[in-house]
Nucleic acid binder design. Structure first.
Lengths: 128, 128
DNA sequence: TCCTGAATTGACTTTTACGTAAATCATTTA
DNA sequence: TAAATGATTTACGTAAAAGTCAATTCAGGA
């Protein structure tokens, strides 16, 4: 495992701009260490970036991604805090399940659309 | 099946504002009929709205949703057109499959986070 | 007929998530 | 040591997706 990544290494690996990565730092999602002014990204920062981009692909906002990342972290409080955390996890899970249903429905309609196309192709070949 | 829905009926059913629905009309996603100036939404418009909101939940932009809705419609061209349509459907399906993988990964991390919480709770009870 | 509540239009505003440009600083290479 | 290369900061710009507000219009009921 590499110790550090530079910002451009990450931009190349994930296909995002430096502006984007710095923006995520401004928003408090990643906290790379510094050597002078230069940012050094640890493997854990890289994992965070991966999680952020995954959240983005699912249509979560930065604020929502922040929440998701927070629940990943081990809980440190007393009973009440931890129970609250479990409730938040369940909530996020419900959102994900909704997205899953949305995907299944969209997939089904795509299947229907494709079958439709294939049928049309067959018709065209017969009528020629 | 109802013949027409008013705009406010749809806002209530789907929890969106009239502005939102009119915005989708401006973007060419829905085309309700008119009685005078008043919009009348047919069941097919309602289905379209449902599809739009589903796309939104999955993080698709208006432009992408437009594309998706277009591929749902029966293809009317000649062979080349239809084959192109099939290619576009496959592309969208790939995007959906990526989202599906993203959901599964996120779910797994949620599970781990929750187990972590439960473990912490057990520890707290033992140490009391 | 008058009023009230809905709906429409148009314009301006806001939020989110970056893009872009300019100036500065640091480091490596010739 | 000069030049090129890469990173940083600051600040303004922008596109998308609505929100908000004001002025109108219109249909239906008392």
């Amino acid at each position: 495992m590499r110790e550090y990544y530079t910002i451009t290494e990450l931009t190349r690996e994930f296909g995002v701009s430096t502006r984007t990565i710095r923006f995520y730092e401004d928003e408090g999602l990643i906290k790379p260490v510094r050597r002078g002014r230069t940012r050094l990204f640890r493997p854990s920062d890289r994992v965070l970036l991966k999680q952020i981009l995954r959240g983005k692909r699912l249509g979560f906002s930065i604020a929502e991604i922040k929440e998701i990342i927070e629940v990943y972290r081990a809980p440190s409080g007393e009973e009440g805090q931890i129970k609250l955390m479990i409730a938040r996890i369940d909530e996020k899970r419900n959102e994900l399940e909704q997205k899953r249903r949305d995907i299944e429905e969209t997939m089904r309609e795509m299947d229907a659309a494709e079958e439709n196309c294939i049928e049309r192709l067959a018709e065209l070949r017969v009528s020629q």
